[in-house]
Amino acid sequence: MLSIKNLHASIEGTPILRGINLEVKAGEVHAIMGPNGSGKSTLASVLAGREEYEVTEGEVLFQGKELLELSPEDRAREGVFLAFQYPIEIPGVSTTNFLRTALNQVREYRGLEPLDAVKFLSLMKEKMALVEIDQKLLSRSLNEGFSGGEKKRNEIFQMAMLEPVLSILDETDSGLDIDALRIVSNGVNKLKSENTATIVVTHYQRLLDYIVPDFVHVLYKGRIVKSGTKELALELEEKGYDWIKEEVDSTATV
């Protein structure tokens, strides 16, 4: 489904990603872990199409299409969803209002009829239950005055509404208490299917108790330096990242 080959990206001339290779197949959950500043969030942002990052080398194929050639909105319409690490607050725009616009633009791109207000509302009700989010919250200005947990639940709610093929969760666990973590993870798990894939970007293993990965990759200095199964995450939890850093830095100096 997703094939990243030798991806290099920089911001304002500073290289952040220095050759990422990753294959993600339908039905899989991949966790991207790594110390702060290793490039995890950059990878998520580049995939979603954030303009500040310049891709200097490499290619990304998503369901056979050159993902990097597409505008951010077309990536979303093709089925890429980024759950933001820091969801944006937009005064004056309600979740309900903007999401209806978004969903209908996505549907139009996919050759589907737009949803009328009634159908949209009933779909919303169904998806709201998944992340235990209140309708009142959704009719308020987007994320304005929301708690950390409410913002992240809203991200997963939007994901449920847009039914992406590939979901990228960028540090969705940050700013969440245990209850919210459980609710958000449940939502993500219920949305998984054999036709969709998930990339979970996280600093901590904790989230992976709930969203169990098939593969764990460790990112360091802009490259994937180690890949394994969920046991690798447990090892990282126990031993921290230093041993990996040492391993990489020592081979680099040889």
Binding site: G49, S71, E73, A76, I90, Q105, Q158, L162
Partner: peptide, 8 residues
């Protein structure tokens, strides 16, 4: 960007 990332 946030709105674009949702398909708008």
């Amino acid at each position: 960007f946030y709105l674009q990332a949702r398909g708008i």
